[in-house]
Amino acid sequence: MGNLMSTSFAPECTDLKQKYDACFNYWYTEKFLKGKSVYNECEDLWADYKECIDIHLQKQGIKPMLDEARKEAPFENGGIPVDKSNEK
């Protein structure tokens, strides 16, 4: 699906990211959507990629902004802001 792949915010991580993306896109279409998967494959590739971006999130000063946003709208909450889910 499309030949062009997106790049990472950190050029150093783009290679690792694209390897992971290729694996994930296949898993998503062939396994996840078809209900054939019982676990998140491509985890190993993601771990390498994550290691790289974690360094650069810190270096480029993105980490603090991210942490703030995570508190406001937790991943576990599906990204719904905490103040909103309290209203419901």
């Binding site: 997106s6 790049t7 950190a10 991580c13 209900g35 676990y39 998140n40 971006i53």
Partner: peptide, 17 residues
């Protein structure tokens, strides 16, 4: 100019990603 996956979790029981 960039798209990065920071975290991804699959719940096979609920069928959610």
């Amino acid at each position: 100019v960039g798209v990065d996956v920071l975290r991804r979790e699959f719940d096979p029981n609920k069928g959610t990603l």
